[in-house]
Protein backbone atom coordinates (compact mmCIF):
# COMPACT_ATOMS: atom_id res chain seq x y z
CA UNK A 1 0.00 0.00 0.00
CA UNK A 2 1.33 3.39 -0.95
CA UNK A 3 1.95 6.13 1.57
CA UNK A 4 0.78 9.49 0.31
CA UNK A 5 1.84 12.84 1.71
CA UNK A 6 -1.20 15.08 2.11
CA UNK A 7 0.07 18.63 1.46
CA UNK A 8 -2.70 20.04 3.65
CA UNK A 9 -2.28 17.72 6.65
CA UNK A 10 1.47 17.60 6.00
CA UNK A 11 1.53 13.91 6.88
CA UNK A 12 2.23 10.68 5.05
CA UNK A 13 -0.90 8.58 5.30
CA UNK A 14 -1.95 5.21 3.84
CA UNK A 15 -3.44 5.11 0.38
CA UNK A 16 -6.73 3.84 1.88
CA UNK A 17 -7.49 7.35 3.13
CA UNK A 18 -7.31 8.83 -0.34
CA UNK A 19 -9.25 8.74 -3.57
CA UNK A 20 -7.89 9.33 -7.03
CA UNK A 21 -9.61 12.16 -8.88
CA UNK A 22 -8.25 12.19 -12.43
CA UNK A 23 -5.69 14.26 -14.26
CA UNK A 24 -4.66 17.59 -12.76
CA UNK A 25 -4.35 21.05 -14.30
CA UNK A 26 -7.41 20.70 -16.51
CA UNK A 27 -9.28 23.89 -15.68
CA UNK A 28 -12.97 24.16 -16.45
CA UNK A 29 -13.34 26.73 -19.25
CA UNK A 30 -14.50 30.15 -18.09
CA UNK A 31 -17.19 30.29 -20.75
CA UNK A 32 -18.12 26.80 -21.93
CA UNK A 33 -20.64 28.12 -24.44
CA UNK A 34 -17.82 29.85 -26.30
CA UNK A 35 -16.15 26.54 -27.04
CA UNK A 36 -16.63 24.56 -30.23
CA UNK A 37 -17.90 21.00 -29.93
CA UNK A 38 -14.37 19.74 -30.58
CA UNK A 39 -12.87 21.99 -27.91
CA UNK A 40 -15.54 20.99 -25.40
CA UNK A 41 -15.07 17.29 -26.22
CA UNK A 42 -11.34 17.71 -25.67
CA UNK A 43 -11.94 19.26 -22.26
CA UNK A 44 -14.43 16.54 -21.31
CA UNK A 45 -12.82 13.41 -22.60
CA UNK A 46 -9.22 13.75 -23.74
CA UNK A 47 -6.53 13.00 -21.17
CA UNK A 48 -2.74 12.77 -21.59
CA UNK A 49 -2.26 9.21 -20.22
CA UNK A 50 1.54 9.45 -20.22
CA UNK A 51 4.11 6.78 -19.60
CA UNK A 52 6.14 8.27 -16.78
CA UNK A 53 5.48 11.59 -15.08
CA UNK A 54 1.78 12.23 -14.53
CA UNK A 55 0.13 15.22 -12.88
CA UNK A 56 -2.96 14.07 -11.07
CA UNK A 57 -5.54 15.01 -8.51
CA UNK A 58 -6.18 13.19 -5.27
CA UNK A 59 -8.58 13.88 -2.44
CA UNK A 60 -7.85 13.08 1.20
CA UNK A 61 -11.34 11.60 1.47
CA UNK A 62 -10.97 10.06 4.92
CA UNK A 63 -8.82 12.86 6.28
CA UNK A 64 -9.08 16.59 5.69
CA UNK A 65 -11.35 16.06 2.64
CA UNK A 66 -9.19 18.44 0.60
CA UNK A 67 -8.32 17.94 -3.04
CA UNK A 68 -4.66 18.29 -3.92
CA UNK A 69 -2.30 17.63 -6.80
CA UNK A 70 0.43 15.06 -7.13
CA UNK A 71 3.25 14.10 -9.46
CA UNK A 72 3.40 10.35 -9.87
CA UNK A 73 5.40 8.09 -12.12
CA UNK A 74 3.00 5.78 -13.95
CA UNK A 75 5.74 3.22 -14.56
CA UNK A 76 6.87 2.76 -10.96
CA UNK A 77 3.60 3.96 -9.37
CA UNK A 78 5.72 6.12 -7.10
CA UNK A 79 4.66 9.54 -5.89
CA UNK A 80 7.32 12.11 -6.66
CA UNK A 81 5.66 14.96 -4.79
CA UNK A 82 2.31 16.43 -3.79
CA UNK A 83 1.21 20.06 -3.68
CA UNK A 84 -1.87 22.10 -2.93
CA UNK A 85 -4.55 22.99 -5.43
CA UNK A 86 -3.84 26.34 -7.01
CA UNK A 87 -0.06 25.94 -6.81
CA UNK A 88 1.84 25.92 -10.06
CA UNK A 89 2.65 22.72 -11.87
CA UNK A 90 6.18 21.71 -10.76
CA UNK A 91 8.86 22.21 -13.38
CA UNK A 92 10.78 19.29 -14.91
CA UNK A 93 13.81 20.47 -12.90
CA UNK A 94 11.88 20.36 -9.62
CA UNK A 95 10.60 16.89 -10.47
CA UNK A 96 14.05 15.63 -11.46
CA UNK A 97 15.48 17.00 -8.22
CA UNK A 98 12.86 15.15 -6.18
CA UNK A 99 13.44 11.95 -8.09
CA UNK A 100 17.18 11.97 -7.60
Amino acid sequence: MMLIECPVCKEKRPELEFRYAGEAHIARPEDPDALSDQEWAKYLFIRSNPRGTHFERWVHAHGCAKFFNAVRDTVTDKFVMTYKCGEARPSPEQIAERQS
Partner: peptide, 13 residues
Protein backbone atom coordinates in the same frame (compact mmCIF):
# COMPACT_ATOMS: atom_id res chain seq x y z
CA UNK B 1 -21.01 15.71 -1.70
CA UNK B 2 -17.69 14.73 -3.33
CA UNK B 3 -18.86 16.24 -6.62
CA UNK B 4 -19.82 19.50 -4.89
CA UNK B 5 -16.58 19.63 -2.93
CA UNK B 6 -14.60 19.04 -6.09
CA UNK B 7 -16.08 22.05 -7.89
CA UNK B 8 -16.07 24.21 -4.79
CA UNK B 9 -12.43 23.52 -3.92
CA UNK B 10 -10.87 23.30 -7.34
CA UNK B 11 -12.96 25.39 -9.77
CA UNK B 12 -14.57 28.07 -7.65
CA UNK B 13 -12.47 28.51 -4.52
Amino acid sequence: LAHMEDYLQTEWP
